[in-house]
Amino acid sequence: MRKVLGALAAVLLGIVAWESYKAVGDPDGTVVAGVRILPRSDDAAMPHVLDVVRRLARPELAGGRPVWQVLVDACLFTLGITTVGFLVGALVGLLLAVLMQRFRVAERGLLPWVVLSQTVPLVALAPLVAGWGGRIWPAWMSVSMIAAYLAFFPVAVGMLRGLQSPSPAGVELMRSYAAGWWRTLLKLRLPAATPYLFPALRLAGAAAVVGAVVGEISTGTRGGIGRLVIEYSREATTDPAKVYTAMLGAALLGLVVAGAVAALEFPLTRHRRKVLLP
Rank of each mutant, 00 (worst) to 15 (best):
Y232R: 10
K274M: 14
Y149P: 01
D42V: 03
R272M: 10
T238M: 06
D51T: 07
V16K: 08
T83S: 07
H271V: 14
F152Q: 02
L150F: 02
Q118G: 10
V143P: 03
M174H: 13
P39W: 02
V53Q: 11
A200N: 05
R189L: 05
V129C: 02
V31T: 12
V31M: 10
P121W: 02
W140N: 01
E231K: 08
I146C: 00
G158T: 08
D73M: 04
G224C: 03
V214R: 07
R227A: 08
L277R: 13
L71V: 15
G29W: 04
A148R: 00
F86G: 00
V84W: 01
R65I: 09
S20C: 15
S20Y: 14
V84T: 08
G158F: 01
A204G: 05
L160G: 00
H271N: 15
R222T: 00
M159A: 09
V49N: 05
L188N: 05
P47W: 02
V35L: 15
P168S: 15
V256M: 14
R2Q: 14
R202F: 13
V24D: 12
R273P: 04
E107D: 13
L253E: 02
L50C: 11
R102E: 07
V210F: 01
L203H: 12
L203T: 15
G109Y: 08
V123F: 14
G211I: 09
V35N: 06
R65Q: 11
Y177E: 11
L71R: 07
Y21M: 09
L186N: 05
V4H: 06
L160S: 05
A23N: 07
L110A: 05
G249S: 08
Y21Q: 04
R202Y: 08
A192P: 04
G224F: 03
A23I: 04
L38H: 11
D43N: 10
T82V: 13
A44F: 07
L50D: 12
A258D: 15
T82P: 06
V129N: 04
G158M: 04
R55V: 07
S144I: 00
T83L: 13
S117G: 08
P191R: 06
G158N: 11
P240N: 06
V143R: 05
L276I: 06
P66D: 06
V72Y: 11
V114A: 02
V275N: 09
G162A: 12
S167G: 15
G226Q: 01
P127T: 14
K22Q: 09
L128Y: 13
A33C: 09
S142T: 11
S176Q: 11
T237H: 12
F77Q: 05
D43V: 13
S233A: 12
R175T: 12
T83F: 10
A7T: 14
R135T: 11
L76H: 06
Q69W: 13
V32E: 03
R202E: 15
V16I: 14
V143A: 03
L185D: 02
P59N: 03
A148G: 09
V129M: 09
